[in-house]
């Protein structure tokens, strides 16, 4: 991400990172998370959206020992320490996957598709993974 995009005369912009992929099957979820962590250094107004299979990134109880890949799910709990506290999960996506808020490993705000659409529309920058 270019400096210019992130900081224009010190103006704080609203950035939303949209997570739409399940973890482990592809690299998107992990790469997306790393971009989010790096974005924290620019001190912008960052939020995360979990839509479609992206909801699976937050499923409790992930254990990758047998798979031999790094389990990065605990890192979502570190986001609060990075001052990234706005995590939105789309209810329709969550429920379509048989999940409820209790299945998620971090505190989130569950929002309807219509509310999510509003949140997306009010962003300066939306980056999708």
């Amino acid at each position: 991400m270019s400096d210019e995009m992130m900081e224009e005369d010190g103006v704080i912009k609203k950035f939303m990172f949209v997570n739409r992929k399940a973890p482990y099957g592809t690299i998107y979820a992990l790469e997306g998370l790393e971009v989010v962590l790096i974005s924290a250094a620019f001190e912008q107004d960052v939020s995360l959206a979990f839509v479609d299979d992206g909801v699976f990134e937050l499923k409790k109880g992930q254990d990758t020992k047998a798979l031999g890949q790094k389990n990065f799910s605990p890192t979502y709990r570190a986001l609060e320490g990075y001052d990234i506290e706005k995590l939105y999960v789309e209810r329709e996506s969550m429920e379509a996957r048989g999940l409820s808020e209790e299945d998620l490993l971090v505190d989130v705000q569950v929002v309807s598709a219509a509310e999510m659409a509003d949140l997306m529309a009010e962003q300066d920058v939306v980056i999708s993974f």
């Binding site: 739409r20 839509v51 789309e90 598709a113 659409a117 509003d118 529309a121």
Partner: peptide, 12 residues
């Protein structure tokens, strides 16, 4: 992929 479907669901 479901990109178009999700886009249409979440487009205002």
């Amino acid at each position: 992929r479901n990109s178009l479907e999700s886009c249409l669901r979440l487009a205002k």
